[in-house]
Design a binder for these strands. Sequence first.
RNA 1: GCCGGGGUGGCCCAAUUGGCAGAGGCGGCCGACUUAAAAUCGGUGGCAGCUACGGGUUCGACUCCCGUCCCCGGCACCA
Length: 836
Amino acid sequence: MSQPSEIERYDPLTIEPPIAARWAQERTYSLRPGPHEAVDDEAPTFYALTMFPYPSGDLHMGHAEIFTIHDALVRHLRMNGHRVLNPIGWDAFGLPAENAARNRGADPRQWTYANIDEQRSTIVRLGYSFDWDLVLRTCDPEYYGWTQWLFLELFEAGLAYRREALVNFCPSCSTVLANEQVVDGACERCSTAVGREPRTQWFFRITEYADELLTDLDALDWPERVKNAQRAWIGRSEGAEITFTIRDPAHGDEDVVVYTTRPDTIFGATYFVFAPEHPAVTRRMAGDDEYAAFLDEVSRRSEIERQSGTTGGKRGFRLPFTVHNPFTNEDVPAYAADYVLMEYGTGAIMAVPIGDERDFEFARQEGLEIRVIIRPTDDGELLDELDPEAMTTAYTGPGVMVNSGEYDGLDVDEAKRRIIDDVASKGWGRAKVNTRLRDWLISRQRSWGAPIPVVHCTMCGEVPVPRSQLPVRLPDDLEFQVQGSPLEQHPTFKGDVTCPSCGGADAVRDTDTMDTFVDSSWYFLRFLAPWDDTRAWPADAADRWLPVDQYTGGVEHAVLHLLYSRFVVKAMRDRGHLTADEPFQALLNQGQVIMDGAAMSKSKGNLVVPGQVYETFGADTLRGTMLFASAPEDDIDWADVSPTGMNKWLARVWRLTLEQVARESDGGPLLADDAAASLRRATAEAIVDASAEFEARKYNTAIAKLMTLTNAVLDATRQGAGGPAVREALEALLTMLAPVCPFVTEELWHRLGHGGSVHEEAWPRADEDLLVDDEVELVVQVNGKVRGRVMVPAGADEAVVESTVRADESVVGHLDGDVVKVVHVPDRLVNFVVRG
RNA sequence: GCCGGGGUGGCCCAAUUGGCAGAGGCGGCCGACUUAAAAUCGGUGGCAGCUACGGGUUCGACUCCCGUCCCCGGCACCA
């Protein structure tokens, strides 16, 4: 038997770095031929993608988790014969770089690239098998020139347009603020109250695709909660638009349209509400100081509420005119109130307190009439009439119409249909589908982003920059420590341009940049050929690889990034640049890495960084710990996991392998036949079990199966014996562990005498013959309680089982009384139902 | 309020979807080796009443149904 002292210690810090360096240097994991090349090959293709990181510093634990899950998937797929596209890049434009520039005078480009270099070396060190020939950074002109191309495509399709919108504006800093820079309604830098200022902004017309974005969700293999979040965000509803009339002796009458999902309740409309900024109201109220004050208060308040998440009560303003309801032919009071939003529907509503909780609350608050127009029913049975005095909330359940003229007695659903028909035939309105999805505001008054490729000419108006002049480069010498926009104030960027259309000099560049979500809405396409300076992506490659087969990333992007990417793919499809309908077929949201039940953060002092782990135990231990801690979708509480335990297991695998190597060279003792047979069986079982777990991407339980196999090897070799069965077990163990712990498995594979890489091995197949049993153990239950177990021939029928049980003294004692029924599950259990 | 995910040994967590409740790990305790310690190795976990609680369906329920409690995450005046 080998003495422990002769066995080399497991020393990951020595074995890992050279292997990592070799993989990076030799481009071991580059896809060859590249993704842009068609291959005549039977290997199935698989596009695996992780949400690319933002380079705000070195990798954190969250990155390590997402990359580890992703890399285990990728390596497992490769071993199963897939041709895997596995690129990596950086989402490199954005506010943190600009803030570093403003606050510390750093050059955002240097700051960003330095962080990317750091992240890149950590990625290499941790053994993630990305394709280093397919790398992109969204802040490179070679990338953002094509982001600008995308803008032009959307512009030409009529999907990019400009209109006025309210933006956050700090009067003291004289700059526009992003939403996250507004804290409790004040500027985060100077605490001045932030105003909402109208400014002309670029939008992408994502609402054009609302229906398709909604219906196509059904076919995606995404977590239900993400699909639900998108459904809620799109917010489709069916109803009607109905025209009411403002009765205003002072300014004249005017038609005003409302949107409602409950046209059936129109006879209960006892007042009318406009959004405070509704043009029909602001026009009439111009010069009214009281109204101006109301508007101001409401806009400020809504900003605070939006930031703090509180709802508070409703603010209303009684308007000096009435509104006429075409159905009841009556004039009702008109209000402006903050609970009606200008951006949704038509910005005006008919208020039905009896049937709408918000209207009910406002009516109570203002002492307005609550008119009963529905008689509740339950399964068609009439219930008591509603009593507005006694009600504390609106009634939104089923019922029949009352006090509703010709519609009295109709079921609400029927009334709804009838009223929509009548509205249309009388010319008072029409059926209408609405969504709460708004067009995507992409203008950012920031300078570390892709410039919007448009020139504003006094003669020609908005003129897109010709594709031949892309990219519109960000100047190298931006001065960030200024008030307002650095791009706007740059000496030449804005003004040094002639109109691409008329050639006139009376033109300026647009000085806004695009939302960074634009950058990330198409990067998965650029990966197909990031070096190609003749096109954004090769269409044939897009057809070959899209949609992405597995996208892995955090839930924080449940709506925006994932929705924008879907929109871009559909728009590009309609422009003929690809044929896929969707960017990401399957989505995996990994859990968070937390600490003691709370999010990790520097300020809480509970931050663990990957370096602390891999510099102590090595990358394999970090990776193994991550995957073993929980299923990929579940959170990992770092306080509950044990890198030490993982490290001990890997050291055990190390020792067992080297002992076997030593035995083979010294000619050590062989296992007894029965020990060898039972180890071979354990190996076959482990292959079957672990393979299933890997297929299901349950890496935590997959590792548990590999630990079980390790224990079987340990058990078999306890007396120092070895032989082919041990080698077979170890080789199966190492190949299956390879996707999780790529370094130690590679090293041990070589120690076992193999010249090639373990990562190029095929996934092991179990010898099925080893798994068939002649005899199986059957559980014996009496009245559902386990009373014993018996050995029976595999596949034994009920008669054989029963006679075996009756011959077994240990259980037969429980069988006194009449056996009423026998339930037999072959090879599993038998249950005797006894009475008496 | 709405939507989603949970509640199983001291702890993290499994359980082929209705079929032996504990796989794997952490920790603890006991033991072997050692002069001793570390490392390594072995052993060790719920009694008729056990899977948050109360009912139900079933030969059989962690699993399905009804009700209740608690925890986490997201959305939230969208007419």
